[in-house]
């Protein structure tokens, strides 16, 4: 059966999901190799969670097909559930129970014997460095501890495919590092991981492949390093001497044409910047922009290129926030 999907851990084709008139997903394709980490990147509301919920059999797509471990999520949900683990965006553990009890509960639901459930739970608590707090109710846990317990709960039954919906959102940098290390360890053991994130940085450090979605569509995909390359990795900045709205708008129009990306304004001092489109030379772009500014008689106090931050690259792929809100 798994030969039908060419041995892919996850394969989705043309996923569509509508909520009333809103298109949450508008034809999403993605593929995850076994044992690899695939990052599903996108801003809030892009449709990341919807994809995860469909793949984890929690939601039926209105169109398209999805296979996990070779099984169709709509036709064979029980087979898919045998293979997967899920850690959602919201902590999916019982606050009133202790960490240990939470894990035993899940293990018992998965037909582990009483003794088996206990040893499996202890083993996971140990691995996730939660042994000390194992006997305390989860409501007394810190955010990082909860997330680790949640991850541990997702691993009961040793799933072959693991879905992690924003596993590090809201965590402090130290806890984030711990979670990253755990996820890497799982992939090294052969678990296929699909994680969603809003941070290109996270995808860059963790994932083998990345798919960027926005407005329910795939806007880019490839290795995280390739994604950075497609947006050039350089940003052109112009600071007008006399900033006002008209001047800024003119500069934006020039940058949009010369850089091939969507410019943005940098705040009160009138800075306008735009990432350079893939393959574009920084020197040529500066020269072209300088000529246009001169022709438009706009005096500037600063003009140059610098390396783009990852956030800017991400923004270039998904479009400005204002557009997204509408």
């Amino acid at each position: 059966m798994s030969s039908a999907s060419g041995g892919l851990a996850i394969e989705a084709t043309g996923l569509v999901k509508r909520y009333g008139k809103t298109m949450a997903l508008d034809g999403v394709d993605l593929a995850a190799r076994p044992g690899a980490i695939l990052a599903l990147l996108g801003p809030n509301g892009a449709g990341k969670t919807t994809v995860v919920r469909i793949l984890a059999t929690l939601l039926r797509p209105d169109g398209g097909t999805a296979r996990v471990g070779g099984f169709d999520v709509a036709k064979d949900p029980d087979k898919v559930r045998d293979l997967i683990g899920l850690t959602g965006q919201y902590t999916a553990v019982d606050e009133d129970l202790t960490g240990y009890e939470n894990l035993v509960l899940i293990a018992r639901l998965l037909d582990h014997s009483r003794a088996g459930a206990r040893s499996h739970a202890s083993e996971l608590l140990d691995r996730f460095e939660l042994t000390e707090t194992a006997r305390r109710p989860v409501k007394t846990y810190s955010g990082g501890m909860r997330r680790r317990l949640d991850l541990a709960a997702g691993l009961i039954g040793r799933p072959r495919v693991l879905f992690l919906d924003e596993p590090t959102t809201g965590l402090d940098p130290r806890s984030r590092g711990v979670v990253w290390r755990l996820i890497r360890g799982l992939a090294e053991e052969g678990t296929s991981v699909l994680l969603t994130t809003q941070y290109l940085d996270e995808a860059d450090r963790l994932a083998d492949d990345a798919v960027v979605i926005d407005h329910g569509r795939v806007v880019a995909s490839g290795a995280p390093a390739e994604l950075k390359a497609t947006v050039g990795g350089q940003t052109l900045e112009v600071r007008p001497s006399l900033p006002d709205d008209l001047v800024a708008a003119t500069i934006e129009a020039i940058l949009a044409e010369e850089c091939g990306t969507v410019p943005r304004r940098g705040g009160a001092d009138g800075l306008v910047s735009a990432p350079l489109a893939g393959g574009m030379s920084g020197t040529a772009a500066v020269a072209a922009v300088a000529r246009r500014l001169d022709a438009a008689a706009i005096p500037v106090s600063e003009l140059g290129v610098r390396l783009a931050s990852l956030d800017e690259a991400f923004l270039a792929l998904t479009g400005p926030v204002s557009e997204r809100v509408q």
């Binding site: 984890a56 929690l58 045998d82 997967i84 999916a92 553990v93 899940i106 639901l109 998965l110 879905f163």
Partner: peptide, 13 residues
């Protein structure tokens, strides 16, 4: 409405 129900539903329960 709680997250734990999503987990139950994603398991072969």
């Amino acid at each position: 409405r709680s997250g734990i129900f999503d987990r139950f539903r994603s398991l072969p329960v």
